[in-house]
Write a protein that binds this DNA or RNA. Structure first.
Lengths: 165, 165
DNA sequence: CTCCGGTGGTTGAGCGTTGAACTGCTTGCG
DNA sequence: CGCAAGCAGTTCAACGCTCAACCACCGGAG
């Protein structure tokens, strides 16, 4: 919150924000609408043809890539960009489906491990082609190689700010 | 989410999808994580300091820009990228806060108009600086002019595919 | 005028998320 | 050893979203 080079009136009213100009508005709207519509579309495609939401899918993917197909709850939450509460609920529901199981953690009595079951792995393998097809159709197939490179660059730039690991 | 090569099912399925290669995976992850984190961050910033979610904010903005501060429910839903059901629920809640009112539509007895009240307008005016500051800080201030232009270009390209008006 | 398919909008149930409170375990410090 | 502080994870209540009925009204065909 250090003051900028220009002197602002150090007065009662807070400094007026820098509003978006017309060009910035258009960029902002394009980003907002396109990301929202794309997320919605991917979610719909996957859920309607497999019954697996993107949130569940992400959990299954992370577990499938983990050693022994198991991971600590909080690490799993971090990788899925989910809160602990949210992950705990989601794992409970996946447990009811028989796709994930819980194990107590040996090194730390407080910890729990989420384990991907064989049934869960099978469900993931059924969903994966649907997911990748959808991502290709609605994202990669729409963009030129230069646009894809720019998308990655922008994403990584924003990540350095939002998630400085 | 990231269907890695390790998930390829052994050729039993009809048409094997074109899996993402390593570069595409990175672009995909960067896009997915950055959009998710940015949306979360903007939502948090706005909700925590004003008590208005992005969904509500969007409704208020659209109404404030409409002639006479009123709009048909379905048009409002379209502009907010919301389902009719979702918008109906949201307007009900905004009505309880006294920020929006419903009016019957004269030209079409089936229709309803959502109207932004003075109290709602005041709430919007209080929230707007918070919102724009957050968007600047986490998006525009992080990107170069070239990146902003690319972001807009990508967004508009995707929109032509996802929402061919 | 009446019927009828289509449209605008609402409602209710079920599911998922959020944030805060809570339990149990571990770690460090005297 | 004993205790406080803090971490891992769960639970609860409130809220929001989705999907599928559902009601009311419009507009055209006979």
């Amino acid at each position: 919150m250090s003051p900028g080079p220009e002197h602002q009136p150090a007065s009662a009213a807070p400094a007026p924000p820098r509003w978006l100009d017309a060009e910035e508005q258009k960029a902002w709207r394009a980003w907002l609408y396109s990301t929202t519509l794309l997320q919605d579309r991917l979610e719909r495609d996957l859920t309607h043809s497999t019954g697996i939401s993107n949130a569940y899918y992400e959990i299954l993917v992370q577990l499938s890539e983990a050693p022994d197909r198991r991971m600590r709850m909080s690490q799993l939450a971090d990788r899925c960009l989910a809160s602990r509460s949210r992950l705990s609920h989601a794992v409970s529901r996946l447990e009811e489906r028989g796709w994930v199981a819980r194990e107590v953690c040996v090194e730390d009595g407080r910890g729990q491990l989420a384990v991907l079951t064989d049934v869960g792995m099978a469900a993931l393998e059924e969903a994966a082609p649907v997911h990748v097809t959808s991502v290709r159709e609605h994202l990669f197939d729409q963009l030129s190689p230069a646009q894809i490179a720019a998308m990655r660059d922008i994403g990584e730039t924003l990540l350095r700010h939002l998630d400085p690991r």
